[in-house]
Simulated scan of single mutants.
Amino acid sequence: MERTERATDSLPARLFLLACDVEAERVKWGDELGYAVRAGVLAELTARGCLREEGRKARPVGDRRTGDPVLDGVLREIAGLPRPKSWSALVRRERRRTCLALEGQLAKSGAISVESRTLRRKRVTVHERDLPARLRAEAAATLTGSEPAGRIEPLRAALASMAALSRLCPELNWRVRYANRRRLKELTERAGPAGRGLKKALDTRRAAHNGGGGG
C-alpha cells in the first residue's frame, strides 16, 4: 500500500517544527531559521530528483514537480532565474517568503495553529506536541552518534547538520557542536550541495555581522 505523505514529512517542515517551543507556543523565528528552511527545501528537491548540481550551480531537472506547494514554488523560482545560481545564493534568497509559505502550509494541514498578536510574537501551537522534541532528539542522536556518516541517509544527515549549523535548538548548543565538530563537517558533506551552501551562507552572514561591529 502506498504511503500517504504528510505536510510534516518534508525536510523544511521538520526543521521548522524542530525550532518550535511547544511550551512557549512560539517558533525560533529569525534569519537563521530562514536559512535552514531554504537549505532544507533545496536538499529535499535534490533528494527528489528535481535539482542537480552542475558546475557548482543548482539546476532544475526538466520540468519535474513534487506536488508540494512550497517545494514547487521554490522550484519555479529557480527555474525562472535568468542564470543558474550557487547553492549559497539560493539559500539566501526569499528566506522570509519561503518560511511564511511553509508556516501557512503547516497551518492549513492542521499540524500547527498560528495566531498573530499585536506587538508580540505570533503564537504557534504544534498539535502533535511531542513532535518537536522527537525531531530534536533525532538530530542530536545523529550528530553525537557513531554510525559512519557515509551510511546515514542524506536527509537525516541534513536534519542534524542544518539544525546544528543554524543553531535552532538548545540540544545542539555550542558545546555539542564543538565536541562533534568533525562529525558535523561529515554530516554537512553528506547532506550534499545544499548543506555546503547553508554553511557558506551562514559563514558569510556571521563574518559580515562580526566585521560590522566596530563601524
Rank of each mutant, 00 (worst) to 15 (best):
C50G: 01
S86F: 14
R117H: 08
G197Q: 13
V61T: 14
A107C: 11
V114S: 07
E53H: 02
R175L: 01
L198A: 03
G73H: 08
L33N: 03
A207K: 14
E44T: 11
A141M: 03
V70Q: 10
A47F: 08
G214I: 09
R59C: 14
T118P: 04
A36V: 07
T66H: 05
L15K: 06
T204S: 09
L15H: 08
C99M: 15
L33E: 07
G110F: 11
V126K: 05
A101W: 04
A101E: 15
V176G: 07
G34Y: 11
E23V: 14
R190S: 08
I78S: 08
A107H: 11
S161K: 00
K28N: 04
E138Q: 15
A43S: 14
R177I: 13
A36E: 06
R97S: 13
G192T: 13
G40C: 06
G110A: 12
G104R: 05
E189K: 13
L131E: 04
L81W: 09
G62N: 09
G62W: 10
N173K: 05
G192S: 11
V91K: 01
K199Y: 05
E44V: 03
E115H: 13
R167K: 13
L42H: 07
G192D: 06
D31A: 13
A179W: 06
G30T: 05
E103R: 15
E25R: 15
P82H: 09
E128M: 04
Y178F: 08
T66E: 08
L159Y: 12
E103I: 02
K28V: 05
E5F: 02
T98R: 10
R175M: 04
C99A: 15
A107I: 04
S113D: 15
E153Y: 01
L100G: 00
P69C: 08
A160Q: 07
T144V: 13
E5V: 15
R206I: 02
A133W: 08
D9E: 14
L71T: 09
W29H: 11
L159P: 10
W87L: 00
A47W: 06
N173W: 04
L168A: 11
A179P: 01
C50H: 12
A157Y: 08
N173M: 02
A164N: 09
R93W: 12
G104W: 01
G49P: 12
L81N: 03
T125M: 02
V124P: 02
E128N: 12
G195W: 00
P132K: 00
L198T: 12
M162P: 02
R181V: 13
T125A: 09
A163H: 06
R206N: 14
R175I: 04
